[in-house]
């Protein structure tokens, strides 16, 4: 039960929902930058939500399985094909043994691919996620390469039932899509928010800089938000935190960010918009919109309710 990588793509990594309870040792939570996309794709193929899948970044990824598997994917606009047949996002598709699964971007971005049974990479510190910075987890602590052979886990009973109900190669049903496609990232105030700096953050259009990665989006724009902000006593930061380093150009931290930081925390991107943040690529434009903490939490509760509803519906139909 193996997935052979015949083309590794660019920065393709094994990711699940990340690590918890290890921040005190400096271990980043990591995991799929858009965990909801991975969770939904997993549900569609009958996996439990946080099984390990692949995070694919711009670049052509090609896989072959040695046994039939179900796949699903979610995220940005990518072309996903089994042989010559297109698989739309959040649909369930059957990939026969030795068929070629090819994933290529229509524009730069990220997607998350789930395979029934999950990618059975060794669990390290409670997760199968790749920590690229510390070189552990996932597949040998690194991005995939041509020639890698990834072990696949055993399928659940639900996988088998979903497969049995598939009439064609691709399902006629799909999971709902939650990622907002607005040009705004919604933020709440951070500990070091002040109205002047905040107003500049909200008024400007920023551009994602080239040196952005899984750790963070470095932003550049016409005018800096602040010149020479102070360095503070270091304290915890989280994915979504918008830091203002010495340069005055903001950085939006993403899933692989460090656990503590000493730069002012001017604002935080809300959790439900982290999936959108994960799609932003160098040269993309980004703007911020301020909302209140309770609104952010309501949106999060609403999203979790929607995921739970989909899960319940799926179990009712195939369980």
């Amino acid at each position: 039960m193996i997935a052979s990588v015949t083309s590794g793509g660019f920065q393709t990594t094994v990711q699940d929902c990340g690590r918890t309870r290890l921040r005190k040792f400096g271990v980043t939570p990591g995991g799929a930058l858009d965990s909801v996309s991975l969770r939904l794709a997993n549900l569609v193929v009958g996996n439990s939500e946080c099984m390990a899948g692949l995070e694919c970044t711009s670049g052509r990824l090609q896989l072959q399985f040695d046994c039939e598997r179900l796949i699903s994917w979610a995220g940005d606009e990518f072309k996903v094909q089994v042989g010559k047949e297109l698989v739309p996002s959040l649909h369930c598709a059957r990939v026969s043994a030795d068929a070629i699964l090819e994933i290529s971007p229509k524009r730069a971005g990220r997607i998350w691919l789930a395979v029934s049974g999950g990618i059975d990479a060794p669990e390290i510190l409670g997760s199968r996620s790749t920590d690229l910075r510390a070189h552990f987890g996932g597949w040998q602590g690194r991005a995939l390469r041509e020639g890698d052979e990834l072990p696949l886990g055993s399928e659940s009973k639900l996988c088998a039932r979903i497969r049995a109900a598939l009439l064609e190669r691709v399902s006629d049903w799909s999971a709902p899509r939650f990622v907002s496609r607005k040009r705004f990232l919604r933020v709440i105030r951070g500990k070091n928010w002040d109205d002047d700096t905040g107003a500049k953050l909200l008024a400007q259009k920023f551009r994602v800089a080239m040196n952005s990665d899984r750790m963070g989006l470095r932003l550049e724009g016409g005018e800096l938000v602040s010149t020479n902000p102070p360095e503070l006593v270091s304290e915890a930061v989280v994915p979504g935190t918008i830091q203002l380093p010495r340069s005055g150009a903001p950085v939006v931290l993403l899933g692989d960010c460090q656990t503590i930081g000493g730069y002012p925390k001017i604002a935080h991107v809300i959790t439900v918009d982290l999936g959108y943040a994960a799609q932003l690529q160098p040269l993309d434009e980004v703007r911020f919109e301020l909302i209140e903490l309770e609104q952010a939490r309501d949106l999060l509760r609403e999203r979790e309710r929607d995921v739970a509803l989909f899960r319940a519906g799926l179990e009712a139909r195939f369980g």
Binding site: T20, R23, K24, E235, A236, L300, R301, E304
Partner: peptide, 20 residues
Amino acid sequence: VIDVTSAYESVAVFFDPARI
């Protein structure tokens, strides 16, 4: 509460986002 960390003069408490 799913995680707790400390730094020089502060403590951070992390919640399960699915049930705050």
